Simulated assay, not measured.
Amino acid sequence: MTTSTDPTGQDPAGRDPEGQDPASQEPAGQDGPGQDGPGLPADWRLFHGDGTVRAVDFPPPPPWRRFTPAGPDAAPAARPYLIGPDEADIVNAALHLRRPLLVTGHPGTGKSSLAHAIARELDLGRVLHWPVNSRSTLQDALYQYDAVGRLREAHLRRDTGGAGGAGEGTPDVGADDVGRYIRLGPLGNALVPVERPRVLLIDELDKGDVDLPNDLLTVFEEGEFTVPELVRLTDRGHPVEVQTDDPDRTAPVTRGRVRCRAFPVVVITSNGERDFPPAFLRRCVRLDLPEPDEQRLRAIVEAHLGPDATAGIDDLLAEFLGRRAPGELATDQLLNAVFLRRGGVDLDAGRLLEAVLHQLGGAV
């Protein structure tokens, strides 16, 4: 059986499992295989709970909890991602067909991290991330127009005789300025015409409104959308620069129409909380990521903590596999346990092992 994993199922942009920023959160392995042990001191306790004030030096964090500098040109950190050949073939099918890849699986199987692995391996730049929740709308994912901000500044400039309190050289608020108040969302940004496609991660679509998958159909089929606030400028044939989801970058939009040149690489994740309509499923390529078996777990540990990291962890592996029911434990929990064990921490002391390998289901 082939399995896949970034163990945590997190996105290297830096958020918690299944859709939060991995530059900070996900087992990243920035140091790569063969790195030194975690380097926890013999007395690993930083906090004693006795009220005594101590100035302590924090030890190095696990590789997947190291933060990288932010910025539009910051190179994504290399993070191990293991996937079986069968799963890789399904990814390739979606790439060739220019169809969205719908990725399902239990938490911690690497659904969100797959998007970052594709972007890194194909050198497609920063992943555009749309974390879906119950309030998410297609409009927000395409673009947002700050009409209130534009009106406020217009009034301010009028009241101050055009200076707006910003001094000389500040442009007037007019038709050419509307782009300053329009920001493309992650989906809108992914449809900006570029030579090489961007990677778009639509995270946990099943958490959104029941109509959201159907709302996406036209955009997926046509590869375009319009910005009515710019369409109204019918006498303006020149591009209007609008803000984008990429920090400090703009994109030109002509006559309010955004149409992709290369359809983006769309990765959609779902935890199976809701069924999707057939019309939506017909337009996707399905990939279900299985739970990693023991052999794959050992490979994951070695990829993140070095080739010698699996020495002496047979009992931890057995405990992890014995506790794991489908969806009840995530692979990053095993990595946490191995990291502490390699630092000399006695996981059998008190309730420590139970805290690290706690069940993900049920009430807390």
Score class of each variant (00 low, 15 high):
S4V: 13
D16A: 14
P17K: 01
E18P: 01
G19W: 02
D21A: 15
P22I: 06
S24T: 11
E26H: 00
Q30E: 05
Q35E: 13
R45L: 14
G49R: 10
V53F: 13
V56M: 00
D73C: 04
D73Q: 12
A74Y: 03
A78W: 02
I83G: 02
D86N: 12
A88S: 11
P100Q: 09
L101E: 04
P107M: 06
G110N: 06
S112P: 03
S113N: 00
L114T: 02
A115C: 08
E121G: 00
L128M: 08
R135A: 13
L138M: 11
Y143V: 05
Q144F: 07
D146H: 08
A147Q: 13
A154V: 00
R158E: 13
D159N: 07
T160L: 15
Y181N: 07
R183T: 15
V192R: 02
P193D: 10
V194I: 00
V199Q: 02
G208V: 04
V210R: 09
D215S: 13
L216V: 01
F220C: 04
E224W: 00
F225Q: 01
L230R: 06
V231I: 11
R232L: 11
G237T: 14
H238E: 15
V242F: 05
R249K: 11
A262V: 14
P264N: 08
N271F: 05
E273T: 14
F276W: 07
V285E: 08
L287W: 04
P292H: 02
A299F: 00
L305D: 06
G322L: 07
R324S: 03
L334Q: 07
N336M: 03
G344C: 08
D346K: 06
D348V: 07
R351D: 15
L352C: 07
V356C: 08
A363Q: 13
